[in-house]
Computed example of a mutant assay.
Amino acid sequence: MLDADLNLLIALDALLADGSVVGAARRIGLSASAMSRTLTRLREATGDPLLVRAGRQMVLTPYAEAIRERTRNVVDEARAVLQPVRTELDLSTLRRTFTIRANDGFVEAFGSRLIAAATAAAPHVCLRFTPKLDKTSTHLRDGSADLEIGVLGEMGPEVRLQALFKDRFVGVVRAGHPLEVEGRVTAQRYVAFGHVVASRRGNSRGPVDEALAALGLERTIVAVVPSFPAALAVARTSDLIALVPASFLGIAAGHHEGVGRDGAYAFELPVATEKITVSQMWHPRLEVEPAHRWLRQLVLSVCRRQWPL
């Protein structure tokens, strides 16, 4: 038997993931005092403070930051080794909550179909959607998310990636808006009205503005809101133009002007912009895990049925 107490790895993983003695204790079901004693043992074992006080909070030392992902992978591997061998996945008895990071637009466009498909195959599975406030692999690395869905950002080379579908942006105005009455939206008429932009980070400019600038035109940004549903809500009750993904409106490829929903009118942009690739991303430790493979295939099939790649 090894001299090292491998139970310390479980506590170390919790401490590095939470960055708090109290939070780590809650995470693995220990008292705060027991976790504090365990932290002392970990400091003795590693020769590093691991957590140090910064004001009223605790922060990880550089060494703790460096071993955080490695510790998580070791713990996950150990748990996988000690789990019963399963040759087949029984979806009828699978009890699990999958956490999926996705923006509101994806949930509105695909959420109901994805939930229905999951429930039909695995009635005891729960899909928990959480918002994407940033593009980072942190949630995949620390295990707080099983899947991330969106446009690839700075996710790191180890993150696995699978393209789901190609999307494009369309303009949206309220029903009865002058642009709907006119029928065809030119670039000049497009910039004649105010615009509402959806951005989590508060950015107001993007590829559409670059394409307009090439024509010597510029749109007037009147408002910036945090999500596509919010942008659509503003456009539906004003004369402003919103810019939203076609998938959010359920507009299939090949459909153009006149397609709308809930009192809104959608039209193709008068300038050319590149399509965007929406992908699902996951950590490699879940690559061959049967339940996770099933989830990925489910997401892929639901998206591909509705939208082509």
Rank of each mutant, 00 (worst) to 15 (best):
198 A>E: 11
236 R>G: 00
177 H>R: 03
38 T>I: 13
164 L>G: 01
97 T>P: 02
158 E>V: 15
113 R>N: 06
195 H>I: 06
157 P>R: 15
49 P>D: 01
62 P>R: 01
110 F>A: 02
18 D>T: 06
213 A>L: 15
275 K>V: 12
93 T>I: 04
53 R>K: 02
22 V>W: 05
45 A>N: 01
219 R>S: 12
83 Q>I: 03
66 A>M: 00
152 L>P: 10
38 T>Y: 04
198 A>I: 14
258 G>C: 04
231 A>R: 09
259 V>A: 04
203 N>S: 12
159 V>P: 10
145 A>S: 14
233 A>S: 05
306 Q>Y: 07
197 V>T: 15
103 N>S: 09
94 L>P: 02
35 M>L: 04
254 G>R: 08
49 P>V: 02
252 A>S: 13
212 L>H: 04
141 R>Y: 09
127 L>E: 04
166 K>Q: 14
91 L>K: 01
254 G>I: 11
289 E>T: 05
106 F>Q: 08
155 M>K: 10
75 V>W: 04
240 L>I: 06
197 V>N: 13
139 H>F: 10
177 H>N: 03
75 V>L: 10
32 A>F: 09
105 G>A: 14
222 V>D: 15
5 D>G: 14
246 A>L: 11
193 F>T: 05
186 T>M: 06
159 V>K: 09
242 A>H: 05
30 L>K: 09
181 V>T: 14
14 A>T: 07
240 L>K: 09
238 S>Q: 03
87 T>K: 07
197 V>R: 14
99 T>L: 04
259 V>R: 01
3 D>A: 12
154 E>D: 15
97 T>E: 13
201 R>D: 12
291 A>H: 08
272 A>L: 13
58 M>P: 01
137 S>P: 14
150 G>I: 08
136 T>D: 12
295 L>N: 01
279 S>T: 03
296 R>V: 09
191 V>F: 15
146 D>C: 06
288 V>A: 15
278 V>M: 04
273 T>Y: 05
274 E>C: 11
206 G>V: 13
19 G>Q: 02
216 G>Q: 10
40 T>G: 14
65 E>C: 02
201 R>T: 12
237 T>A: 01
124 H>M: 09
106 F>C: 10
124 H>V: 05
306 Q>H: 08
246 A>G: 14
179 L>W: 12
280 Q>I: 08
61 T>M: 00
62 P>H: 00
11 A>L: 01
167 D>R: 10
13 D>P: 00
269 L>I: 11
269 L>T: 12
192 A>G: 10
178 P>N: 03
266 A>G: 07
168 R>P: 11
295 L>I: 07
117 A>F: 03
84 P>T: 06
255 H>G: 08
135 K>P: 03
73 N>C: 14
304 R>N: 05
283 H>W: 08
175 A>T: 10
52 V>G: 00
165 F>E: 05
135 K>W: 05
